[in-house]
């Protein structure tokens, strides 16, 4: 998957549903509702947070990577149980949702994200920007993420990436 924007296809209903999914996904992360966050993914999901630098060069290293729902739960458990970090509030803004392939059995979508971070004793700052590159499947009436690759634009992460993107 390269970073050139493929032309959008006419799938306005699907596009509206992906906007809803992304808004709800952002709300779950803003609320630090990680069980809710994991609920957006399929059991066999692939979740990856990767720098634009690695992504463009095709390098396999991720900053955060989960294969399957169990691995998402491990990430959540580590955040809650063992990780030591400064309290913070995050605000996820997702926009520019596009459906680049509407095929029913293999929907491909993209969106841009911006994450603002407010540390315990600081004003908000822009923490990270990037793009979601998604493979989406229908699960009954809902859409689920089978793959979400979060490609962040930052050359460097500011201090730490504590929570999922």
């Amino acid at each position: 998957m390269d970073m050139i924007h493929p032309p959008p296809v006419d799938a306005s209903a699907l596009r509206a549903r992906m906007r809803d999914l992304n808004d709800d996904y952002a709300a779950a992360l803003d609320d630090l509702d990680f069980a809710g966050w994991a609920g957006f993914f399929t059991d066999d999901c692939h979740y990856r947070v990767v720098s634009l630098e690695n992504f463009k060069e095709g390098l396999p290293l991720s900053t955060m990577e989960c294969h399957g729902a169990g691995s998402l739960r491990d990430r959540i458990a580590a955040i809650k149980t063992t990780a030591v970090f400064e309290p913070r509030t995050l605000r996820h803004i997702v926009g520019g949702v596009r459906i680049v392939q509407p095929a029913d059995d293999d929907i491909r979508a993209q969106a841009s994200f911006a994450i603002f971070e407010s540390l315990s004793d600081r004003e908000p700052h822009l923490f990270m920007t990037g793009r979601y590159l998604d493979r989406v499947v229908r699960a009954g009436d809902t859409l689920k993420l089978q793959e979400r690759i979060c490609v962040f634009d930052n050359y460097r992460v500011r201090t730490s990436l504590v929570f999922p993107v």
């Binding site: 396999p60 400064e86 201090t159 730490s160």
Partner: peptide
């Protein structure tokens, strides 16, 4: 081995299960 290296890389870096503790403490 390749899979193991990439998977265990989750312990390290800015989002590392272990390494987050260090960057957070040093920042404070």
């Amino acid at each position: 081995m390749n899979r193991r290296r990439l998977k265990q890389a989750n312990l390290m870096g800015p989002a590392g299960y272990v390494a987050i503790d260090d960057s957070e403490v040093l920042a404070k």
